[in-house]
Design a protein around this nucleic acid. Structure first.
Lengths: 198, 198
DNA sequence: ACATTGGGCGTACATTTGTAAGCTGAAAAT
DNA sequence: ATTTTCAGCTTACAAATGTACGCCCAATGT
């Protein structure tokens, strides 16, 4: 195995170890360099060969999470075309998605209002991007102004994200109720700029 | 000074020390028993005379935050009577409030999706209470069903809280923009159940 | 063929943490 | 007046953490 390959492999091992350890009871802040190194199967000091400190690793994780969000957006769009209600399809896709990538999602949720300014702005950037894409869609669909579409999109994203946070630790049944509730909330928002086609 | 008085006094000192240390860069989880004790002006081990561990202190803080929320709700209601738009008055009151009690608010925001299950449910309970009161108000005002009123109230609270989080670290000017944006979002939500009186 | 590079390791150290054990002195109870 | 209680202190220790330093050796460069 080439040296570059090997290095990339350990780097992935570190990143995966970090994601692995993120859970309902463990935030990134409560992760220690040594713990991550242990899980990745390397010596603590080897960590520095890849990241200068935990913060740098954290920002990398946020970047990865951003990629996931874009992937989610694409997936939702694909399903929309040949299906029923846009809102329902989107929320359901979102819920499926976060269940599959719960740790990624948890990271975004927590660091959005976390203790590191660098993290907060990194997460804010990813979510902004997400909102902007949604706003663009809404603007075309509803022929509203760009400003209004963005405000609307932001509200929608906040509600869906929050619903996701609740859904993460809930039973299937409760999650279904949360989904229904969220759909209702989004419809009110959508109805504000356009007569509702309930 | 009586013994009971003295004890209560140091207990307050501990609680205040904890709130004091909470800031944009310091979450409750990153607070150490020793730090709090230091700030409170007592020896580390004296802490145990008042709380069995940091978690117990944390739950006390959440309770205090709950009191604040109820106080906020009363304050908003008082202002509503003799003023202009209900939504505008409420959001503005909320914004004033969180600026005055930013650390209390930050605690609620963070522990809502924090790492301790006990904290999460404690915060959830306080926010539920807040939502229920608002829902009651909405139900009477709009003659909607109790269920719909609650779903609506929850959406509103989420949006306002989130706006508060953003506003905390923003400049006065940005905060004003956030306020306007939030008012717009709430109007869409309110309009869903009743024709809007913009 | 030889020299350089760099990822990974082991050792080491200063800090910080939670908390156990036991003492002290003043308030409260007898 | 004597005893009991108990908030607060000092001392002590084990565990965990971040990270500096230097060695090793296989992949790479010459």
């Amino acid at each position: 195995m080439s040296r570059a390959e090997q290095k990339e492999k350990t780097r992935r091992a570190i990143i995966n170890a970090a994601f692995q350890q993120l859970s309902a009871d463990k935030s990134f802040a409560s992760l220690s360099l040594r713990e991550v190194a242990r899980e990745a199967g390397i010596a603590p000091t080897s960590f520095y060969r890849h990241f200068s400190d935990m913060d740098e690793l954290g920002l990398t994780l946020v970047d990865e999470a951003g990629l996931m969000l874009r992937q989610l957006m694409r997936q939702a769009r694909q399903r929309i075309v040949h299906n029923r209600s846009v809102i329902q399809t989107s929320v359901e896709t979102f819920m499926e998605f976060i269940m599959q990538h719960s740790n990624v999602f948890r990271l975004l949720l927590r660091e959005r209002s976390g203790t590191s300014a660098a993290f907060r702005s990194a997460v804010a950037r990813e979510i902004q991007h997400f909102c902007a894409e949604l706003a663009d869609y809404l603007r075309k669909e509803n022929k509203s102004t760009a400003e209004m579409a963005l405000i609307q999109a932001e509200a929608m994203v906040i509600l869906v994200f929050h619903a996701g946070a609740d859904a993460l630790d809930a039973s299937d049944e409760v999650r279904q109720r949360i989904t229904t509730k969220t759909i209702q909330q989004l419809r009110w928002l959508a109805g504000g700029s356009k007569p509702p086609a309930v």
